[in-house]
Write a protein that binds this DNA or RNA. Structure first.
Lengths: 350, 350
DNA sequence: GTGACGCTTGGAATCGATTACATCGAGACG
DNA sequence: CGTCTCGATGTAATCGATTCCAAGCGTCAC
């Protein structure tokens, strides 16, 4: 592969001049510029990003560590992150943690070793020492979707409380009284928050959320299935189940179907995180939709702000309920319930 | 961030010795090794991968350029690629081409600039000059799923011909005679091959595949919808539609549903590429399943072979038909039809 | 006792860029 | 006409590692 020296030799100038041409430095004569450009062209020269990074201490690369690539929510997030990053001149290296803290740390370490300019994380657990150290050491960092409390890192996420209230209102209106939740890991903020929001919304209707109706899942399909089977084995099974993410909802659907039961006639089902497939399932699944694309873009903008020395802002967007048929035939005419109680965008500087 | 010099100073040795300890070079005294390790520990030193790459001309990184991250098939492929790569000591940088040749080239250029050790591509089009140059220039490269004919690069893919024959047999047995296909872009091998396999299989039953029954899609959901609408507008619409990928099948399902029609009663539907969601759609979709995970792993092994100087082998695995309910109630008892005509694995050295 | 050998170790070159500093020449101005 | 300024250019240091080469030193055999 041709190096800058080869170009310099071919153009009859020094490497400094070649570098100046390549970096659009003003003081280069038109003649020298033309000769360099010609040499670059004829040699098919491309600057070595590795060498450049070593010298400038910038890789123009963002690291993104997500909890689970197979989850369409995170796939869409990854896609929007890459898009916005590309628009701002950055590349993205994605690490898939598969909901495993050890894998998460592996990827964080790897990305740090590669001297990425900044890190976007949706933490799998509550506090990897590695990540805390990195944050303290000043690595530009932004949490997306999930976060770690007590760390001074901007958070970009969706607030689902209003939408959960709408969901509970919807379930209540359809006559469901024994409602259960398939929760995510308590170590994740989304895991615990969704349970709390659900419990609070139920309380407003005087409905309890007994412990046997809180199933412990791990955001993966298998756990949704397992928990749902547990619910169905109960002497008094719930008449509605809320899955804290889409994969666990899929597992729940599996479990219900395996028993020869039907949604929503035998049991209602709703999910956090809406995905295109929910329109086509049997029945279409009522879900809480996050503004995923906007979340990804906002997270990148915040991170790049931080990297380039501007103040980075935390961002909270609103999620909304999308009613379909999995909780019963809806009496409402509106299929999407807006959540006027929460402003569409809240910004706070961190 | 601490550098090797800091470690050397702290341990009272030269940088050469530190480097030897870090790289497990044999001739280092136990005493020196202990002091270096202690210094590494207390400084929290981590070698700078950028500097190391510059010097050794190896990044231990693989590039993966896929056609569309939102397609669950490619997501699963990406996941298995990353897994196998990690097991072999490599990281993966994923580029999403979104079925756009310009984006594909952007990512290839970017990855080449970063001096990745090897490139895994599922080409969006038939022949980007950039990719041809890279292949000729000796960049270790492997095509996965799709390939570019006439380039001397190993190909790892699934052969779907036998499964397509099984699908046609299935459709024929259920009485479907006017069968149509939503094809992928002719510029991709998978796009054209699937049409040819389908046409050939139909011919064996004396069934035609008229041009009006070949809809031109682009592997994205919207095109599946558009093409299906066109089919339904025909004076004599098909009674079965085969979508050449899962996203277009989703679009087709949309279109059928939007007309108030039902699958399979009004029109049968089958797809290439099976995904977990197809079990839960209304109705469950009959699909041709590729051994996606094995494909990804085999591709990485082939690429790493090439990188590390061993001969790389092309690999062809068999796809299989998974019968569900979207083509009509199946008379067979077996839900998975094995394809005994094709051996499970074919290997050929390239 | 001494030369050879082998194990450790350090010095310094190197990878391919960027960039501070020095130099050179030409034009401007008094 | 001398000097000052400024634009264009080159030299060389530098980023953080790896690795070749030479040197130091202890041990062993003769």
């Amino acid at each position: 592969m041709a190096s800058i020296k080869d170009v310099a030799a071919a153009a009859g100038v020094s490497v400094a001049t070649v570098s100046r041409v390549l970096n659009a430095h003003p003081s280069v004569s038109a003649d020298a510029r033309a000769r360099v450009l010609a040499a670059v062209e004829s040699l098919g020269y491309r600057p070595n990003a590795v060498a450049r990074s070593l010298r400038t201490d910038q890789t123009h690369t963002l690291g993104l560590v997500i909890s689970d690539v197979l989850n369409p929510y995170f796939t869409e997030l990854a896609r929007s992150v890459e898009e916005e990053a590309r628009a701002l001149g950055y590349s993205v290296i994605i690490g898939n943690a598969d909901e495993r803290p050890d894998l998460q740390d592996h990827h964080v370490r790897n990305l740090l070793d590669r001297r990425i300019d900044g890190l976007l994380v949706s933490p799998t657990d509550g506090g990897s020492p590695l990540m805390l150290d990195a944050a303290r050491a000043g690595t530009p960092m932004v949490f997306v979707d999930r976060w770690i409390p007590g760390v001074d890192v901007p958070v970009v996420r969706a607030d689902g409380r209003a939408a959960v209230q709408d969901l509970v209102a919807h379930l209540h209106a359809l006559g469901h009284r024994r409602v259960a939740i398939i929760a995510g890991p308590a170590a994740t903020t989304t895991g615990s928050e969704r349970v709390e929001a659900f419990r609070a919304a139920l309380a407003a209707y005087g409905l309890p959320l007994p412990d046997v109706y809180i199933g412990q899942g791990d955001f993966q399909a298998a756990s949704g299935r397992r928990v749902t089977e547990g619910f169905l084995d109960l002497p008094e099974p719930p008449d509605a189940v809320f899955a804290a993410d889409n994969l666990m909802a899929l597992g729940a659907l599996d479990a219900v179907r395996a028993r020869g039961l039907r949604v929503p006639d035998d049991i209602a089902l709703a999910a956090f995180d809406d995905i295109p497939w929910f329109v086509h399932t049997d029945p279409p699944v009522t879900a809480i939709a996050q503004p995923t694309g906007e979340l990804g873009r906002a997270a990148v903008r915040a991170l790049v702000d931080r990297i380039e020395g501007r103040p980075a802002a935390s961002v909270t967007l609103a999620a909304r309920l999308v009613v379909r048929r999995s909780c019963g035939e809806a009496p409402e005419t509106a299929r999407i319930i807006p959540t006027p109680s929460l402003p569409p965008v809240q910004r706070s500087t961190t």
